[in-house]
Design a binder for these strands. Structure first.
Lengths: 189, 189
DNA sequence: TCAATATAGTTTAGATACGATACTATAAAA
DNA sequence: TTTTATAGTATCGTATCTAAACTATATTGA
């Protein structure tokens, strides 16, 4: 017998997918394109590559390569080779891409104003954490729950993986290298 | 700024989609086909039509018509014209369809054993209810939260919309006609 | 009673996502 | 310096998805 949680997760997911698709369609684009815009608006500077995007969306890089080409063509994103490791193509939203995303978001097509309910966020994070670790997937979390994050004097943050200092907005972004700290959001048994 | 809940719902949804796709692929079928099997295993006898399925999955009937034809061909479902209203084609899982679904579910490919966490279920239901009513979508809930459901003597259930008596297993299924009662799971403000 | 309308589903065509495979280019390792 | 690993591209076949036109059945209402 399928668990009740599963039933509602399925439903939530179906709903989310179809609403996203409608929103994308209304903006003259495809579902994946909207998902890409969303991801790029949320990810930090370590995570803006095609590879990370593929891991996040659960798609192969070949598939994404096409979508990215389309979006660059359409002027919503830019691809810039990484100056240090030239295998990487860093992805950036253009002004047009940001504007489009804002237009969609502000239209409240996707979802109503969900209340900033800490309990809901924590609940979803627990489910996610459990699920992801069960399947050996990356967690794509924010710094505050990451074991590499240290808060130094005065509440300023630093990533102990890269050594870089993190701004207030950096800390809110999602990261490909994120790993839950053992205390915060431990997986459900 | 996108709300935190939205970020995690997006992630949950991406993850769910890609995991479902993998599970479907491993079973030699497509994502939609698995979703159809799941739906048919959960829906009650008022909800086993292509139309309801389309509303649940957020797809057009034309698209589903093809998928259903494929699945009937493959022997996983049956389509029987409704004896009363012959416009309807009632959908049923065949023995093979049920077996396939059981094989996938028991493989724990889709998700680990989520704990039967009442708080999580309630949380997700609240989000869902809010979202659905905001977008004028059907809720596809179970009888226990439905305003048409009356429990008569000895805990037996009856649907006041159709007048029919409902068995214990009926009550756990999801229904196209479901509407939240005003008390249970009221939408968030 | 019979035309108009609504509803359930099918069919078809075009766009495109997706996976698989083979490929290039760059970087790291041995 | 050869080998191996990694990031991304190119190409092809399959199948989904939407939209629009269509058939069939049921309901409405003049």
């Amino acid at each position: 017998m399928m668990s009740d949680v599963r039933i509602w997760l399925d439903r939530l997911s179906s709903l989310h997918k179809s609403q996203m698709r409608k929103a994308a369609c209304a903006a003259g684009m495809q579902l994946v394109h909207l998902e890409i815009l969303q991801y790029l608006s949320m990810c930090n500077r370590y995570s803006n590559t095609a590879q990370a995007l593929g891991e996040y969306l659960g798609q192969t890089k070949g598939s994404l390569s096409q979508s990215l080409a389309f979006m660059e063509e359409a002027g919503y994103i830019e691809r810039k080779p990484d100056p240090v490791d030239r295998r990487y193509a860093r992805l950036f939203l253009t002004k047009e891409g940001k504007a489009l995303l804002k237009r969609i978001d502000s239209g409240k097509i996707l979802a109503p104003d969900f209340p900033e309910d800490d309990a809901a966020v924590e609940m979803i994070q627990r489910l996610l954490s459990d699920w992801q670790s069960h399947n050996g997937l990356k967690s794509f979390g924010q710094c505050k729950s990451c074991r590499f994050n240290k808060t130094v004097d005065g509440g300023r943050s630093q990533c102990m993986l890269t050594g870089e200092a993190l701004s207030k907005s950096d800390v809110r972004k999602i990261c490909r290298e994120h790993e839950f700290s053992s205390t915060a959001s431990a997986p459900l048994s």
